[in-house]
């Protein structure tokens, strides 16, 4: 009863069709950014290394290495500011959390490619 009522409130904030992507995918996250009164869309590209939470609290972590420095961004999946997530390439993985990538450098951060239907080539 309690969760029913909480779900009813949460459900209105959920996206109806969440973008499909998997752990290990290289994704383009299109993010709405407000600078003063202007709005623009910023694209962040990287590997999805984790997906956490459920319902409105669901988030995913995208990691990329920019100039020898690892950068991770955590996006709320249902945020209206996360406009779109496009999976570009699938990676072959055997686990749900790819935190081991944090210790890797250079070419080793790339995952072996896997061909899957949900990715869209650029």
């Amino acid at each position: 009863m309690k969760t029913e009522m909480l779900d009813a409130v949460e459900r209105k904030g959920l996206k109806e069709d969440t973008p499909y992507f998997e752990i290990g995918d290289i994704v383009d996250v299109r993010c709405r950014i407000r600078e003063g009164s202007k709005e623009r869309i910023q694209v962040f590209t990287g590997t999805v290394i984790a997906r956490k939470g459920r319902g409105i609290n669901e988030t995913f972590t995208v990691r990329r290495v920019i100039g020898n420095e690892g950068v991770e961004r955590i996006f709320p999946l249902h945020s209206p500011n996360v406009v779109d997530v496009k999976a570009i390439r699938s990676g072959k993985t055997r686990r749900a959390k790819l935190y081991f990538l944090r210790k890797r450098t250079g070419k080793a951060v790339r995952l072996p490619q896997r061909h899957s239907k949900h990715t869209v080539s650029k």
């Binding site: 309690k2 009522m5 909480l6 209105k12 709405r32 409105i56 249902h78 945020s79």
Partner: peptide, 22 residues
Amino acid sequence: KVGMTQVYDESGKLLPVTVIQA
């Protein structure tokens, strides 16, 4: 009091909210 959850407002901010069955 039913409990607490989160809700996005129009600007995309996540608000902490309490649900009350009144």
